[in-house]
Write a protein that binds this DNA or RNA. Structure first.
Length: 493
RNA sequence: GCCCCCAUCGUCUAACGGCCAGGACGGCACCCUUUCAAGGUACAAACAGGGGUUCGAUUCCCCUUGGGGGCACCA
Protein backbone atom coordinates (compact mmCIF):
# COMPACT_ATOMS: atom_id res chain seq x y z
CA UNK A 1 0.00 0.00 0.00
CA UNK A 2 3.03 2.19 -0.05
CA UNK A 3 3.30 4.96 -2.55
CA UNK A 4 7.05 4.75 -2.39
CA UNK A 5 8.52 2.94 -5.35
CA UNK A 6 12.21 3.85 -5.52
CA UNK A 7 15.08 2.14 -3.71
CA UNK A 8 15.18 3.15 -0.08
CA UNK A 9 18.30 3.89 1.90
CA UNK A 10 17.67 3.07 5.52
CA UNK A 11 19.94 2.72 8.46
CA UNK A 12 20.25 0.98 11.77
CA UNK A 13 21.97 3.43 14.07
CA UNK A 14 22.53 1.97 17.52
CA UNK A 15 24.54 3.42 20.37
CA UNK A 16 27.35 1.18 21.55
CA UNK A 17 25.92 1.02 25.04
CA UNK A 18 25.28 -2.70 25.15
CA UNK A 19 23.79 -5.43 23.05
CA UNK A 20 20.77 -4.94 20.84
CA UNK A 21 17.69 -6.20 22.59
CA UNK A 22 14.64 -7.67 21.03
CA UNK A 23 12.64 -4.47 20.74
CA UNK A 24 15.47 -2.46 19.33
CA UNK A 25 16.36 -5.07 16.77
CA UNK A 26 12.82 -5.25 15.42
CA UNK A 27 13.26 -1.81 13.93
CA UNK A 28 16.43 -3.07 12.28
CA UNK A 29 14.56 -6.07 10.88
CA UNK A 30 11.83 -3.89 9.42
CA UNK A 31 14.40 -1.51 7.99
CA UNK A 32 16.36 -4.34 6.46
CA UNK A 33 13.26 -5.89 4.92
CA UNK A 34 12.24 -2.53 3.55
CA UNK A 35 15.65 -1.94 2.00
CA UNK A 36 15.57 -5.35 0.35
CA UNK A 37 11.93 -4.92 -0.66
CA UNK A 38 12.68 -1.69 -2.48
CA UNK A 39 16.01 -2.81 -3.83
CA UNK A 40 17.75 -0.16 -1.79
CA UNK A 41 20.49 -0.21 0.83
CA UNK A 42 20.66 -1.01 4.49
CA UNK A 43 23.45 0.58 6.44
CA UNK A 44 24.79 0.46 9.95
CA UNK A 45 26.03 3.55 11.72
CA UNK A 46 27.38 3.70 15.24
CA UNK A 47 26.10 6.59 17.30
CA UNK A 48 28.82 7.01 19.87
CA UNK A 49 28.55 10.68 20.69
CA UNK A 50 28.26 10.05 24.40
CA UNK A 51 31.64 8.77 25.41
CA UNK A 52 30.58 8.25 29.00
CA UNK A 53 27.95 5.68 28.13
CA UNK A 54 30.04 3.64 25.78
CA UNK A 55 30.36 -0.03 26.68
CA UNK A 56 33.48 -1.89 25.65
CA UNK A 57 32.84 -4.51 22.98
CA UNK A 58 29.36 -3.30 22.09
CA UNK A 59 30.06 -2.67 18.44
CA UNK A 60 31.30 -6.21 17.99
CA UNK A 61 28.24 -7.63 19.70
CA UNK A 62 25.92 -5.44 17.68
CA UNK A 63 27.41 -6.57 14.39
CA UNK A 64 27.44 -10.15 15.60
CA UNK A 65 23.74 -9.92 16.39
CA UNK A 66 22.93 -8.60 12.94
CA UNK A 67 25.08 -11.25 11.36
CA UNK A 68 23.37 -14.01 13.33
CA UNK A 69 19.97 -12.76 12.24
CA UNK A 70 21.12 -12.62 8.66
CA UNK A 71 20.56 -8.88 8.36
CA UNK A 72 23.26 -8.09 5.87
CA UNK A 73 24.40 -4.50 5.57
CA UNK A 74 25.68 -2.70 2.52
CA UNK A 75 27.64 -0.01 4.28
CA UNK A 76 28.89 0.05 7.83
CA UNK A 77 31.67 0.67 10.32
CA UNK A 78 33.49 -2.54 9.42
CA UNK A 79 33.13 -2.46 5.65
CA UNK A 80 33.01 1.25 4.99
CA UNK A 81 31.10 2.66 2.05
CA UNK A 82 30.77 5.80 -0.02
CA UNK A 83 29.96 7.97 2.99
CA UNK A 84 32.45 6.59 5.48
CA UNK A 85 33.20 6.73 8.27
CA UNK A 86 30.08 5.12 9.76
CA UNK A 87 31.03 5.99 13.31
CA UNK A 88 29.93 9.34 14.63
CA UNK A 89 32.94 9.98 16.81
CA UNK A 90 34.96 10.05 13.60
CA UNK A 91 32.80 12.66 11.95
CA UNK A 92 33.21 15.52 14.39
CA UNK A 93 34.37 17.90 11.67
CA UNK A 94 31.02 17.54 9.94
CA UNK A 95 29.10 18.43 13.07
CA UNK A 96 31.37 21.38 13.81
CA UNK A 97 30.88 22.70 10.30
CA UNK A 98 27.12 22.39 10.66
CA UNK A 99 27.15 24.10 14.05
CA UNK A 100 29.29 26.86 12.59
CA UNK A 101 26.76 27.41 9.83
CA UNK A 102 23.90 27.54 12.27
CA UNK A 103 25.81 30.01 14.40
CA UNK A 104 26.62 32.18 11.40
CA UNK A 105 23.04 32.13 10.16
CA UNK A 106 21.80 33.15 13.60
CA UNK A 107 19.97 29.86 14.04
CA UNK A 108 22.07 28.96 17.04
CA UNK A 109 24.00 30.60 19.85
CA UNK A 110 26.64 29.77 22.40
CA UNK A 111 25.43 29.14 25.92
CA UNK A 112 27.75 29.58 28.87
CA UNK A 113 25.35 28.47 31.57
CA UNK A 114 26.90 26.06 34.02
CA UNK A 115 25.37 22.68 34.77
CA UNK A 116 24.76 24.00 38.26
CA UNK A 117 22.64 26.85 36.99
CA UNK A 118 20.68 24.57 34.70
CA UNK A 119 20.10 22.22 37.57
CA UNK A 120 18.85 24.97 39.82
CA UNK A 121 16.67 26.27 37.01
CA UNK A 122 15.07 22.90 36.53
CA UNK A 123 14.39 22.47 40.23
CA UNK A 124 12.82 25.88 40.39
CA UNK A 125 10.60 25.13 37.42
CA UNK A 126 9.49 21.87 38.93
CA UNK A 127 8.75 23.52 42.25
CA UNK A 128 6.57 26.05 40.48
CA UNK A 129 4.97 23.34 38.36
CA UNK A 130 6.19 24.96 35.17
CA UNK A 131 7.42 23.06 32.15
CA UNK A 132 11.09 22.34 32.47
CA UNK A 133 13.34 23.74 29.77
CA UNK A 134 16.12 26.17 29.09
CA UNK A 135 15.09 29.76 29.77
CA UNK A 136 17.13 31.33 26.99
CA UNK A 137 19.42 33.38 29.21
CA UNK A 138 22.38 33.28 26.81
CA UNK A 139 20.25 33.87 23.76
CA UNK A 140 20.64 37.60 24.18
CA UNK A 141 24.41 37.72 24.51
CA UNK A 142 25.76 39.73 21.59
CA UNK A 143 27.55 37.61 19.01
CA UNK A 144 30.84 39.47 19.41
CA UNK A 145 30.82 39.01 23.17
CA UNK A 146 29.94 35.34 22.84
CA UNK A 147 32.79 34.79 20.41
CA UNK A 148 35.20 36.46 22.79
CA UNK A 149 34.06 34.48 25.82
CA UNK A 150 34.27 31.26 23.85
CA UNK A 151 38.04 31.60 23.79
CA UNK A 152 38.31 31.13 27.52
CA UNK A 153 35.01 29.70 28.75
CA UNK A 154 33.31 26.40 28.32
CA UNK A 155 30.15 26.57 26.29
CA UNK A 156 27.57 24.56 24.45
CA UNK A 157 25.77 25.51 21.27
CA UNK A 158 22.01 25.73 21.42
CA UNK A 159 19.55 25.88 18.59
CA UNK A 160 17.51 29.06 18.51
CA UNK A 161 13.94 27.83 18.35
CA UNK A 162 11.51 30.45 17.02
CA UNK A 163 9.21 31.75 19.75
CA UNK A 164 6.32 32.06 17.37
CA UNK A 165 4.53 29.69 15.07
CA UNK A 166 4.45 25.95 14.91
CA UNK A 167 6.37 23.16 13.26
CA UNK A 168 4.83 20.30 11.36
CA UNK A 169 6.56 17.01 10.72
CA UNK A 170 5.23 14.45 8.33
CA UNK A 171 5.26 10.90 9.63
CA UNK A 172 4.76 8.14 7.09
CA UNK A 173 2.40 6.27 9.39
CA UNK A 174 0.40 9.03 11.04
CA UNK A 175 0.58 11.97 8.70
CA UNK A 176 1.31 15.46 9.94
CA UNK A 177 2.36 16.03 13.53
CA UNK A 178 2.22 19.65 14.59
CA UNK A 179 3.83 21.16 17.63
CA UNK A 180 3.73 24.76 18.84
CA UNK A 181 7.24 26.16 18.83
CA UNK A 182 6.75 27.73 22.25
CA UNK A 183 6.60 24.27 23.77
CA UNK A 184 10.13 23.64 22.51
CA UNK A 185 13.12 25.07 24.33
CA UNK A 186 16.51 26.02 22.94
CA UNK A 187 18.06 22.58 22.94
CA UNK A 188 21.73 21.76 22.93
CA UNK A 189 23.18 20.68 19.60
CA UNK A 190 26.87 20.75 20.44
CA UNK A 191 28.11 19.72 23.85
CA UNK A 192 30.96 21.40 25.70
CA UNK A 193 33.20 18.45 24.95
CA UNK A 194 32.84 19.17 21.26
CA UNK A 195 30.59 16.21 20.56
CA UNK A 196 27.20 16.76 18.95
CA UNK A 197 23.96 15.69 20.53
CA UNK A 198 21.68 13.33 18.64
CA UNK A 199 19.60 16.32 17.57
CA UNK A 200 22.46 17.61 15.42
CA UNK A 201 24.14 14.35 14.47
CA UNK A 202 20.95 12.89 13.03
CA UNK A 203 20.25 15.63 10.43
CA UNK A 204 23.90 15.91 9.51
CA UNK A 205 24.57 12.22 9.05
CA UNK A 206 21.30 11.15 7.55
CA UNK A 207 21.67 13.91 5.00
CA UNK A 208 25.29 13.06 4.28
CA UNK A 209 24.44 9.40 3.89
CA UNK A 210 21.40 10.11 1.74
CA UNK A 211 19.01 8.30 4.03
CA UNK A 212 15.53 8.31 2.54
CA UNK A 213 13.59 6.87 5.48
CA UNK A 214 14.43 7.54 9.10
CA UNK A 215 13.13 4.60 11.11
CA UNK A 216 13.18 4.91 14.88
CA UNK A 217 11.12 4.28 17.98
CA UNK A 218 8.21 6.59 18.61
CA UNK A 219 9.86 7.91 21.74
CA UNK A 220 11.48 10.25 19.19
CA UNK A 221 8.18 11.63 18.00
CA UNK A 222 8.10 14.57 20.43
CA UNK A 223 11.53 15.76 19.33
CA UNK A 224 11.00 15.22 15.62
CA UNK A 225 10.03 18.91 15.20
CA UNK A 226 13.43 19.92 16.58
CA UNK A 227 15.07 17.84 13.92
CA UNK A 228 12.87 19.27 11.23
CA UNK A 229 13.87 22.75 12.35
CA UNK A 230 17.53 21.84 11.94
CA UNK A 231 17.03 20.26 8.54
CA UNK A 232 15.29 23.44 7.43
CA UNK A 233 17.88 25.78 8.94
CA UNK A 234 20.66 23.87 7.25
CA UNK A 235 18.79 23.84 3.97
CA UNK A 236 18.62 20.06 3.94
CA UNK A 237 15.64 18.21 2.49
CA UNK A 238 13.80 16.36 5.21
CA UNK A 239 13.76 12.56 5.15
CA UNK A 240 10.61 10.50 5.45
CA UNK A 241 10.05 9.71 9.10
CA UNK A 242 8.75 6.37 10.26
CA UNK A 243 8.20 6.32 13.99
CA UNK A 244 7.23 2.88 15.17
CA UNK A 245 5.58 1.87 18.41
CA UNK A 246 7.61 -0.04 20.93
CA UNK A 247 7.18 -3.56 22.24
CA UNK A 248 5.53 -3.94 25.62
CA UNK A 249 6.03 -6.47 28.37
CA UNK A 250 3.30 -9.13 28.84
CA UNK A 251 1.70 -7.38 31.80
CA UNK A 252 1.90 -4.02 30.08
CA UNK A 253 4.63 -1.50 30.64
CA UNK A 254 8.10 -1.47 29.31
CA UNK A 255 9.77 -4.67 28.25
CA UNK A 256 12.33 -5.50 30.88
CA UNK A 257 14.82 -8.28 31.50
CA UNK A 258 12.14 -10.08 33.48
CA UNK A 259 9.86 -10.34 30.49
CA UNK A 260 12.18 -11.33 27.74
CA UNK A 261 13.93 -8.11 26.83
CA UNK A 262 16.87 -10.33 26.31
CA UNK A 263 19.58 -9.52 23.88
CA UNK A 264 19.52 -11.13 20.46
CA UNK A 265 22.53 -13.23 21.32
CA UNK A 266 20.79 -14.57 24.41
CA UNK A 267 17.97 -15.80 22.21
CA UNK A 268 20.57 -17.53 20.12
CA UNK A 269 21.89 -19.20 23.27
CA UNK A 270 18.40 -20.27 24.24
CA UNK A 271 18.07 -22.24 21.05
CA UNK A 272 15.98 -19.96 18.88
CA UNK A 273 16.47 -19.91 15.13
CA UNK A 274 17.30 -16.66 13.34
CA UNK A 275 14.54 -17.18 10.79
CA UNK A 276 11.97 -17.69 13.53
CA UNK A 277 13.10 -14.58 15.37
CA UNK A 278 12.98 -12.51 12.21
CA UNK A 279 9.55 -13.84 11.27
CA UNK A 280 8.12 -13.43 14.74
CA UNK A 281 9.49 -9.97 15.40
CA UNK A 282 8.35 -8.83 11.99
CA UNK A 283 4.76 -9.85 12.64
CA UNK A 284 4.60 -8.30 16.04
CA UNK A 285 3.47 -4.84 15.16
CA UNK A 286 2.68 -5.70 11.58
CA UNK A 287 0.43 -8.19 9.85
CA UNK A 288 -0.25 -9.55 6.43
CA UNK A 289 -3.71 -10.96 5.94
CA UNK A 290 -4.18 -14.48 7.18
CA UNK A 291 -0.51 -15.39 6.97
CA UNK A 292 1.74 -15.65 9.97
CA UNK A 293 4.52 -18.00 8.98
CA UNK A 294 6.43 -16.24 6.24
CA UNK A 295 9.87 -17.05 4.94
CA UNK A 296 12.48 -14.38 4.62
CA UNK A 297 11.84 -14.15 0.89
CA UNK A 298 8.10 -13.86 1.39
CA UNK A 299 8.62 -11.18 3.99
CA UNK A 300 10.84 -9.21 1.65
CA UNK A 301 8.14 -9.48 -0.96
CA UNK A 302 5.17 -8.42 1.08
CA UNK A 303 6.60 -6.24 3.82
CA UNK A 304 5.86 -2.56 3.63
CA UNK A 305 6.87 0.05 6.15
CA UNK A 306 3.60 1.88 5.54
CA UNK A 307 1.62 -1.02 7.02
CA UNK A 308 3.18 -0.94 10.46
CA UNK A 309 0.80 -0.89 13.39
CA UNK A 310 0.61 2.31 15.42
CA UNK A 311 -0.31 0.69 18.70
CA UNK A 312 2.39 -0.79 20.91
CA UNK A 313 2.51 -4.59 20.72
CA UNK A 314 2.99 -7.03 23.57
CA UNK A 315 5.83 -9.47 23.39
CA UNK A 316 4.21 -12.93 23.10
CA UNK A 317 6.86 -15.46 24.04
CA UNK A 318 4.38 -18.37 23.65
CA UNK A 319 3.87 -17.52 20.03
CA UNK A 320 7.58 -17.14 19.46
CA UNK A 321 8.16 -20.58 20.94
CA UNK A 322 5.47 -22.09 18.77
CA UNK A 323 6.92 -20.44 15.72
CA UNK A 324 10.41 -21.65 16.53
CA UNK A 325 8.98 -25.17 16.66
CA UNK A 326 7.43 -24.65 13.25
CA UNK A 327 10.78 -23.65 11.80
CA UNK A 328 12.47 -26.60 13.44
CA UNK A 329 9.94 -28.97 11.91
CA UNK A 330 10.18 -27.39 8.49
CA UNK A 331 13.93 -27.51 8.42
CA UNK A 332 15.80 -29.70 5.94
CA UNK A 333 16.69 -32.96 7.74
CA UNK A 334 20.42 -32.50 7.25
CA UNK A 335 20.25 -28.94 8.53
CA UNK A 336 18.37 -30.07 11.59
CA UNK A 337 21.02 -32.69 12.28
CA UNK A 338 23.69 -30.00 12.14
CA UNK A 339 21.75 -27.74 14.48
CA UNK A 340 21.25 -30.58 16.93
CA UNK A 341 24.87 -31.61 16.66
CA UNK A 342 26.09 -28.09 17.38
CA UNK A 343 23.75 -27.86 20.32
CA UNK A 344 24.72 -31.22 21.83
CA UNK A 345 28.35 -30.47 21.27
CA UNK A 346 28.11 -27.76 23.88
CA UNK A 347 25.37 -29.26 26.08
CA UNK A 348 26.55 -32.86 26.43
CA UNK A 349 29.02 -33.62 29.23
CA UNK A 350 32.71 -33.68 28.28
CA UNK A 351 32.97 -37.46 28.84
CA UNK A 352 30.94 -38.07 25.72
CA UNK A 353 33.46 -38.53 22.91
CA UNK A 354 33.55 -35.92 20.16
CA UNK A 355 32.88 -35.48 17.37
CA UNK A 356 29.36 -36.77 17.77
CA UNK A 357 28.40 -39.51 15.39
CA UNK A 358 26.38 -37.95 12.58
CA UNK A 359 24.76 -41.19 11.45
CA UNK A 360 23.55 -41.73 14.98
CA UNK A 361 22.20 -38.18 15.14
CA UNK A 362 20.50 -38.62 11.80
CA UNK A 363 18.58 -41.50 13.36
CA UNK A 364 17.75 -39.53 16.50
CA UNK A 365 16.72 -36.26 14.86
CA UNK A 366 13.43 -37.47 13.36
CA UNK A 367 12.44 -38.84 16.76
CA UNK A 368 12.64 -35.47 18.46
CA UNK A 369 11.85 -32.95 15.78
CA UNK A 370 8.14 -32.81 16.63
CA UNK A 371 8.91 -32.65 20.30
CA UNK A 372 11.10 -29.60 20.62
CA UNK A 373 10.37 -25.93 20.26
CA UNK A 374 13.83 -24.77 21.26
CA UNK A 375 17.16 -26.31 20.54
CA UNK A 376 17.92 -26.04 24.23
CA UNK A 377 15.31 -28.75 24.82
CA UNK A 378 17.23 -31.29 22.79
CA UNK A 379 19.49 -32.47 25.57
CA UNK A 380 16.59 -33.44 27.83
CA UNK A 381 15.24 -35.74 25.13
CA UNK A 382 18.42 -37.45 24.06
CA UNK A 383 20.81 -37.55 27.00
CA UNK A 384 20.05 -41.20 27.71
CA UNK A 385 21.34 -42.15 24.29
CA UNK A 386 24.74 -40.91 25.37
CA UNK A 387 24.81 -42.25 28.92
CA UNK A 388 26.87 -45.39 29.34
CA UNK A 389 25.11 -46.21 32.54
CA UNK A 390 21.54 -45.37 33.48
CA UNK A 391 20.85 -45.94 37.15
CA UNK A 392 17.54 -47.69 37.72
CA UNK A 393 14.98 -45.10 38.82
CA UNK A 394 13.51 -45.51 42.33
CA UNK A 395 10.87 -48.25 42.33
CA UNK A 396 8.12 -45.80 43.27
CA UNK A 397 8.41 -44.35 39.81
CA UNK A 398 7.51 -47.70 38.32
CA UNK A 399 4.69 -48.39 40.70
CA UNK A 400 2.13 -45.96 39.44
CA UNK A 401 -1.34 -46.32 37.98
CA UNK A 402 -1.90 -50.01 37.23
CA UNK A 403 1.27 -51.00 39.05
CA UNK A 404 0.59 -49.17 42.23
CA UNK A 405 1.47 -51.53 45.14
CA UNK A 406 2.11 -54.28 42.66
CA UNK A 407 5.87 -54.65 42.52
CA UNK A 408 5.82 -58.41 41.93
CA UNK A 409 3.47 -58.08 39.00
CA UNK A 410 5.58 -55.31 37.49
CA UNK A 411 8.70 -57.40 37.90
CA UNK A 412 6.97 -60.31 36.23
CA UNK A 413 5.87 -58.15 33.35
CA UNK A 414 9.41 -56.93 32.79
CA UNK A 415 10.71 -60.48 33.01
CA UNK A 416 8.25 -61.53 30.34
CA UNK A 417 9.33 -58.67 28.16
CA UNK A 418 12.99 -59.55 28.53
CA UNK A 419 12.29 -63.13 27.71
CA UNK A 420 10.36 -62.14 24.60
CA UNK A 421 12.98 -59.87 23.12
CA UNK A 422 16.25 -61.40 24.30
CA UNK A 423 17.98 -62.89 21.33
CA UNK A 424 15.37 -61.60 18.89
CA UNK A 425 16.19 -59.44 15.89
CA UNK A 426 16.75 -55.90 17.21
CA UNK A 427 14.67 -53.51 15.18
CA UNK A 428 12.00 -51.04 16.14
CA UNK A 429 9.30 -52.82 14.19
CA UNK A 430 10.32 -56.22 15.47
CA UNK A 431 10.46 -55.03 19.06
CA UNK A 432 7.06 -53.46 18.87
CA UNK A 433 5.49 -56.53 17.36
CA UNK A 434 7.09 -58.86 19.88
CA UNK A 435 6.27 -56.72 22.89
CA UNK A 436 2.69 -56.17 21.84
CA UNK A 437 2.32 -59.92 21.68
CA UNK A 438 4.00 -60.27 25.05
CA UNK A 439 1.61 -57.77 26.60
CA UNK A 440 -1.36 -59.61 25.15
CA UNK A 441 -0.05 -62.92 26.41
CA UNK A 442 0.42 -61.49 29.89
CA UNK A 443 -2.99 -59.86 29.84
CA UNK A 444 -1.49 -56.41 30.37
CA UNK A 445 -2.56 -53.32 28.40
CA UNK A 446 0.26 -52.38 26.05
CA UNK A 447 0.58 -48.89 27.45
CA UNK A 448 1.16 -50.20 30.93
CA UNK A 449 3.84 -52.58 29.81
CA UNK A 450 5.50 -50.03 27.60
CA UNK A 451 5.72 -47.45 30.33
CA UNK A 452 7.61 -49.91 32.54
CA UNK A 453 10.01 -50.58 29.71
CA UNK A 454 10.37 -46.92 28.89
CA UNK A 455 11.30 -46.04 32.43
CA UNK A 456 13.74 -48.92 32.73
CA UNK A 457 15.50 -48.26 29.43
CA UNK A 458 15.59 -44.48 29.39
CA UNK A 459 15.25 -43.57 33.04
CA UNK A 460 12.43 -41.19 32.09
CA UNK A 461 8.67 -41.17 31.79
CA UNK A 462 8.69 -38.85 28.77
CA UNK A 463 10.86 -39.83 25.86
CA UNK A 464 11.05 -40.10 22.10
CA UNK A 465 9.19 -43.09 20.62
CA UNK A 466 10.15 -46.16 22.62
CA UNK A 467 11.02 -48.78 20.03
CA UNK A 468 13.04 -46.51 17.81
CA UNK A 469 14.87 -45.41 20.91
CA UNK A 470 15.55 -49.01 21.94
CA UNK A 471 16.89 -49.76 18.53
CA UNK A 472 19.37 -46.93 18.85
CA UNK A 473 20.33 -47.74 22.43
CA UNK A 474 21.04 -51.33 21.39
CA UNK A 475 20.15 -54.77 22.65
CA UNK A 476 22.88 -55.19 25.19
CA UNK A 477 22.24 -51.97 27.09
CA UNK A 478 18.48 -52.34 26.88
CA UNK A 479 18.44 -55.86 28.24
CA UNK A 480 20.84 -54.98 31.02
CA UNK A 481 18.69 -52.03 32.10
CA UNK A 482 15.50 -54.09 31.91
CA UNK A 483 17.02 -56.82 34.07
CA UNK A 484 18.28 -54.29 36.58
CA UNK A 485 14.82 -52.79 36.86
CA UNK A 486 13.25 -56.20 37.23
CA UNK A 487 15.68 -57.04 40.02
CA UNK A 488 14.97 -53.77 41.80
CA UNK A 489 11.25 -54.42 41.66
CA UNK A 490 11.70 -57.93 43.00
CA UNK A 491 13.81 -56.63 45.84
CA UNK A 492 11.04 -54.22 46.70
CA UNK A 493 8.41 -56.92 46.79
C1' G B 1 2.56 20.35 35.36
C1' C B 2 2.99 20.94 29.91
C1' C B 3 3.36 18.43 25.12
C1' C B 4 2.99 14.23 21.62
C1' C B 5 1.15 9.41 20.10
C1' C B 6 -2.14 5.19 20.32
C1' A B 7 -7.06 2.13 21.04
C1' U B 8 -10.55 -4.93 16.93
C1' C B 9 -10.92 -11.71 20.71
C1' G B 10 -6.40 -12.90 26.81
C1' U B 11 -2.09 -11.91 22.95
C1' C B 12 -0.31 -10.59 17.61
C1' U B 13 -3.22 -8.96 13.75
C1' A B 14 -6.97 -8.64 8.89
C1' A B 15 -10.84 -5.18 7.48
C1' C B 16 -8.89 0.57 3.95
C1' G B 17 -18.32 3.04 4.83
C1' G B 18 -21.95 -1.94 3.15
C1' C B 19 -21.69 -10.36 3.48
C1' C B 20 -22.84 -14.06 10.22
C1' A B 21 -15.87 -8.78 12.04
C1' G B 22 -11.37 -13.18 9.16
C1' G B 23 -6.57 -15.62 10.54
C1' A B 24 -2.60 -17.00 14.06
C1' C B 25 -0.82 -17.99 19.29
C1' G B 26 -2.98 -19.43 23.69
C1' G B 27 -7.55 -21.92 25.88
C1' C B 28 -11.31 -25.80 25.87
C1' A B 29 -13.41 -30.55 23.76
C1' C B 30 -12.93 -34.66 20.70
C1' C B 31 -10.04 -37.81 17.21
C1' C B 32 -5.25 -40.15 16.51
C1' U B 33 -1.88 -42.54 20.00
C1' U B 34 3.34 -46.77 23.68
C1' U B 35 4.77 -41.48 27.01
C1' C B 36 5.40 -36.54 25.36
C1' A B 37 4.77 -34.06 21.16
C1' A B 38 3.19 -33.31 16.22
C1' G B 39 -1.29 -33.65 13.27
C1' G B 40 -6.83 -33.40 12.39
C1' U B 41 -11.79 -31.51 13.78
C1' A B 42 -15.09 -28.48 16.70
C1' C B 43 -16.11 -24.65 20.21
C1' A B 44 -15.57 -20.18 23.30
C1' A B 45 -13.41 -15.37 22.70
C1' A B 46 -13.05 -8.53 20.24
C1' C B 47 -14.86 -3.53 17.41
C1' A B 48 -13.28 0.87 25.28
C1' G B 49 -17.66 4.52 26.26
C1' G B 50 -20.54 8.79 24.50
C1' G B 51 -21.75 12.18 20.82
C1' G B 52 -21.89 13.53 15.77
C1' U B 53 -21.23 12.97 9.77
C1' U B 54 -23.82 9.42 6.50
C1' C B 55 -29.05 5.82 3.50
C1' G B 56 -25.41 2.97 6.37
C1' A B 57 -20.20 3.06 10.60
C1' U B 58 -15.05 -1.23 13.43
C1' U B 59 -13.77 2.13 9.47
C1' C B 60 -14.42 9.62 9.08
C1' C B 61 -14.74 13.93 13.05
C1' C B 62 -15.14 15.51 18.39
C1' C B 63 -15.18 14.45 23.67
C1' U B 64 -14.34 11.04 27.78
C1' U B 65 -11.73 6.99 29.59
C1' G B 66 -7.61 3.90 29.23
C1' G B 67 -2.54 2.87 27.62
C1' G B 68 2.32 4.49 25.84
C1' G B 69 6.04 8.21 25.26
C1' G B 70 8.64 13.03 25.72
C1' C B 71 10.12 17.62 28.42
C1' A B 72 19.22 16.23 29.77
C1' C B 73 25.78 18.98 27.79
C1' C B 74 21.49 10.29 26.79
C1' A B 75 20.44 8.39 22.60
Amino acid sequence: MSTFVGPARVRYAPSPTGEPHIGNIRTAIWSWLFARHTGGQFLVRIEDTDQSREVEGSVGRILESLRWLGLTWDEGPDIGGPYAPYVQSKRLDDYHAAARRLLDSDNAYRCFCTPERLDALRKEQQAERRSPGYDGLCRSIPAAEATARAASEKFVVRFKVPHEGSTTVEDLLRGPITVENRTLDDFVILKSDGFPTYHLAHPVDDTAMHITHVTRGDEWLPSAPRHALIFDALGYPRPIYVHNAIILAPGGGKLSKRHGAKSVLEFADDGYLPDAIVNFLCITGWGHGDDTVLSREELINVFDMADLSLAPATFDIEKLNWMNGVYLRNMQPEDLVEQIAARLDRDLPPEVPRPLDRANLAAIAPLIRERIQLLSEVLGFVDFFYATDIPTPPVEQFLVKRWREKAPEAAAALAAAVEAIAGAAWSANGLEETLRAAAAAAGVPVGDLFSLIRLAVTGKAVTPPLFESMEIVGAEACLARLRAAEAALRAAS
